[in-house]
Amino acid sequence: MKRKLLAASSVACLMLCGAAFAADLTVGFSQIGSESGWRAAETTVTQQQAKERGIDLKFADAQQKQENQIKAVRGFIAQGVDAILIAPVVATGWDEVLTEAKDAEIPVILLDRQIDAPEDLYLTAVTSDQVYEGKVAGEWLVKEIGDQACKVVELQGTTGSSPAINRKKGFEEAIAAKSNITIARSQTGDFTRTKGKEVMESFIKAENGGKDICAVYAHNDDMAVGAIQAIKEAGLKPGTDIKVVSIDAVPDIFLAMAEGEANATVELTPNMAGPAFDVLEKFKADGTVPPKWIQTESKLFTQADDPKGVYESKKDLGY
């Protein structure tokens, strides 16, 4: 009974009180789990962002299960939160629970993944553009190489996964106009260090002991770290003999950059919540409806960007 009253009063507030109450927002966050360092960092950053803004964040770990997420969302609705953030574990099966949220007039914001559901069921989705990430990496290489001939080897993500497909596509688009840059070899390293290292070893053997390779492009930093070890063990200098560019911007790649062993990385920001809270606060304040997709920044980091400093700022985020 009390809860219902609370819910009713917050709905009333939504219409009457506006911005004055923005600081007292209660937001539910249904996280997928903690399957990767980046995921853990996203959780940490979301909590930090909420704290900075004085938002009361209710966190629920779904442990990779959609049913847990749906349960959590229903729980948030019952508690009468002001908004719900969901990092969806799968793309389908959301219609029912999102309709319930809509009926309760609770806006839902999706983080880092899109879903297959009618657009009117959620306020907006905050995600990165994976094609764009690949493009940023490719553009960096184009600028770095200039007109030299350059054979690139590519360490793909897990075959068939959307980041692997999109990051490959973006990179290829960026280098398409440059005939001096070619992708000589492309294999999957399954997003892991071990496989990244193994694949890079074989590339080096196949390309004249690595002497023919001018750069390696890895779909994530972990594979790049593995590749760097393979390059070193083959007696070459990563970052100099073979340029290393990758995506994600996890802390370990900044250590490598500080050592001069990696050249550039494109950030997949763990801060999805920041933009989400921005539009939420605006929406609550004056009803500004955001676009259906908010693209996060894909920032390029190079050795010139104080890698040591970035490492220090990132290392405690839970990566």
Partner: peptide, 16 residues
């Protein structure tokens, strides 16, 4: 061996 190889322990992927 795999831990020593990549100078790190990857709990998600080691031996997967």
């Amino acid at each position: 061996i795999v831990t020593a190889d990549i100078h790190g322990a990857d709990a998600n992927n080691a031996g997967l």
